[in-house]
């Protein structure tokens, strides 16, 4: 991998706000001000060519919004997205350029047009980008793609509803691969699938990455899944990145109290009998996020500074390959590796 080549994807101070005000008439009648939901509130990261960056976080943290911003489904309110060194508008200006990025969605039941045959679904990008000449060529390419994802070319004649969830996700992947993309955005690609089928899809995605040199932006709420596929992982909370680290570092030495709480919260299959300490409280509304650090109302390490000053994402003391946005880590009062004393008195 040449060092001089720009990152496949770079995101700089990206923010996206949504107007969630009520309709004009109601607003005037009840004298309610406009309300803004800060789905993504100033995040930066880069994905080097041929690697996987995952964004994890709970529902409402803005990870799916980032995915949609990156492929141009939403326009950023602030900041910018650079694809292969080019601003997204330029990077999506021509069909030849748009061909290079594709997206895989979460719900295999909604991501395929129910009225189209599978062969037409897979061929749509081929036609849109003018990648095939004539029917025979298209047919051959569709058959090849179906083979590539472990389906039979005969399946092309069927409709989506004739397939199981896992098979549909394979069809989505075949469609995404049809334009020979270099970069795939995967928005929770396995969270609607059963666990044995999830393993199939994860293995397939890893194999395709090896074979085709793909770059992934992987969105998920499942830390165990993310560990299997990622090179680097970003943890999001309330529209912000709170920690960004190489995958192994994140799991062996999580730094941000939220990351540590998330890892604590995952049910333990090892049955070590370890008493889990659930993090207390709930995620605040992104319409009125708390001032200062967004995690401070739930954080056992919060002090006055955390309540006022939003922390910046900076290299963490001790593990400099990790960047984290936490005053406690910066000041060295986070006791890495030990259980956080009284990590939130949960109700239980």
């Amino acid at each position: 991998m040449p060092d001089t080549a720009p990152d496949m994807l770079a995101v700089e101070d990206l923010a996206r706000y949504f107007d969630v005000s009520r309709p004009w008439l109601q607003r005037v009648l009840v004298r309610e001000p406009r309300r803004t939901l800060r789905a993504v509130d100033g995040i930066s990261f880069a994905v080097p060519r041929g690697t996987t960056l995952s964004l994890v976080g709970e529902s409402g943290c803005g990870k799916s919004t980032v995915a949609r911003l990156v492929v141009g489904l939403y326009r950023p309110t602030e900041g910018r997205v650079l694809f292969d060194g080019l601003d997204l508008d330029q990077a999506r200006a021509t069909a030849e350029q748009r061909r290079r990025m594709q997206m895989i969605f979460q719900d295999p039941y909604a991501s395929l047009n129910p009225r189209w045959r599978v062969r037409d679904i897979i061929a749509e990008p081929l036609r849109a980008f003018g990648l095939v000449q004539g029917r025979a060529d298209q047919q051959a390419r569709v058959a090849e793609l179906l083979n590539q994802v472990g389906l039979s070319p005969l399946d092309g004649e069927k409709f989506p509803h004739e397939f199981s969830g896992g098979q549909r996700q394979r069809i989505s992947i075949a469609r995404a691969l049809s334009s020979n993309p270099e970069f795939l955005v995967c928005d929770e690609p396995t969270s609607a699938l059963d666990v044995s089928v999830q393993a199939q899809i994860l293995n397939l995605m890893k194999e395709l990455q090896r074979r085709l040199g793909l770059t992934y932006l992987f969105i998920s709420h499942n830390l165990a899944v993310v560990r299997q596929v990622s090179d680097r992982i970003g943890v999001m909370y309330l529209g912000r990145l709170v920690e960004l680290a190489p995958a192994e570092t994140l799991f062996t030495a999580p730094r941000h109290p939220y990351t540590r709480a998330l890892m604590e919260a995952i049910p333990d299959l090892e049955m070590s009998g370890r008493q889990r300490i659930p993090v207390g409280g709930e995620v605040p509304s992104p319409i009125s996020p708390p001032p200062g650090c967004p995690f401070h109302p739930r954080c056992p390490l919060a002090n006055d500074r955390c309540r006022i000053e939003p922390p910046a994402l900076i290299p963490a003391r001790g593990t400099p390959q990790t960047v984290t946005a936490c005053h406690a880590v910066e000041e060295g009062r986070d006791h890495p590796g030990e259980a956080i004393p009284g990590l939130a008195p949960a109700a239980a």
Binding site: R68, L73, R92, Q102, F129
Partner: peptide, 13 residues
């Protein structure tokens, strides 16, 4: 707002 429409938008139709 279904994902298949988003998928079509991603390829720039």
């Amino acid at each position: 707002n279904k994902e298949y429409v988003l998928a079509a938008r991603v390829i720039g139709l």
